[in-house]
C-alpha cells in the first residue's frame, strides 16, 4: 500500500495541536478559561531617557494613550496592543510629535498580592514629526513595559505603568550633502497613571 507523503507532516501537526489544546482543555476544566478583553487608557509624564542625546534638546512633557489587552490561553501571558501620543517641547523652538504603536506580550508576575504586576515586551512602529525641520517618518520600535494595577470593583482596574521605547533610526541614510551629519536612535520613557476596564465580566 502506498503510504501518503503527508503522513509524517500530519502526525507532527496533530502532535503540536495536542500540545496547544491540552493545556487549554486543562484550563477550561480548572479555571473556566474564557475571553477577557480589557480596554485601558493612561496619561502621565513622558521623557527622553535621561543621559541620552535627545535630552540635550527635548524636555519632559505629558503624554497619554490607549491600550487593548486580551488574555490568551495561558496562565501568565496576555497580548497587549496600544498607541499613545506625546508632544515634546524644549526651551528653544525644537518640538517633537510622537505616536508609538506597539504589540506586546504581557507576563503576569507570579506574585500573590492584591496587586497585579506585569512585565511586557514587544515591538511596533513610531510615527515622529519634528519642528523646525518638519521631517516625519514611521520608525521601527522595540518596547519594554512594567505595570502594577489593582482591581477597583469588577469593571475597573487602576494602576501605574512605565513604558520604554527604543526607536531605531540608524538604519536610515544620512543626507549626502552634510558630511558631519550623525544618525541617532531615540530612547523614550513614559510614566502613566492608568485605568482599564474589563469589557467582559
Amino acid at each position: 500500500m502506498r503510504q501518503s507523503r503527508f503522513g509524517p507532516k500530519v502526525a507532527v501537526a496533530f502532535s503540536l495541536a495536542l500540545c496547544w489544546v491540552l493545556p487549554i482543555a486543562a484550563q477550561v476544566e480548572t479555571e473556566e478559561w474564557r475571553f477577557r478583553p480589557q480596554l485601558g487608557l493612561w496619561f502621565g509624564p513622558v521623557t527622553p531617557v535621561p543621559g541620552t542625546h535627545l535630552t540635550r534638546i527635548l524636555e519632559t512633557s505629558l503624554g497619554g494613550g490607549l491600550f487593548f489587552r486580551m488574555n490568551i490561553p495561558s496562565n501568565n501571558l496576555r497580548f497587549e496592543t496600544g498607541a499613545s501620543y506625546s508632544y515634546y517641547t524644549s526651551p528653544t523652538i525644537a518640538r517633537l510629535h510622537s505616536i508609538p504603536v506597539y504589540g506586546a506580550l504581557s507576563y503576569i508576575l507570579p506574585i500573590h498580592l492584591p496587586l497585579t504586576f506585569q512585565a511586557k515586551g514587544g515591538f511596533g512602529s513610531n510615527f515622529l514629526r519634528n519642528y523646525p525641520e518638519g521631517s516625519r517618518n514611521w520608525l521601527p520600535l522595540g518596547y519594554l513595559g512594567f505595570e502594577a494595577s489593582f482591581p477597583a470593583g469588577k469593571v475597573v482596574n487602576i494602576g501605574l505603568r512605565i513604558d520604554y521605547y527604543f526607536v531605531y533610526e540608524q538604519h536610515l541614510r544620512p543626507p549626502p550633502n552634510n558630511p558631519n551629519y550623525r544618525l541617532y536612535n531615540g530612547h523614550f520613557l513614559n510614566f502613566g497613571l492608568m485605568v482599564n476596564f474589563n469589557l467582559n465580566r
Binding site: L54, A94, N130, E133, N137, L139, N178, Y181, L183
Partner: peptide, 20 residues
C-alpha cells in the same frame, strides 16, 4: 512593512540633534 521600517528617508530624531 513601510510603516515598520520607515516610509521615507526623513530623519525626525537625528534632524533635531544635527545642526544645519
Amino acid at each position: 512593512a513601510l510603516a515598520v521600517l520607515g516610509c521615507t528617508n526623513e530623519l525626525p530624531l537625528s534632524d533635531l540633534l544635527n545642526n544645519t
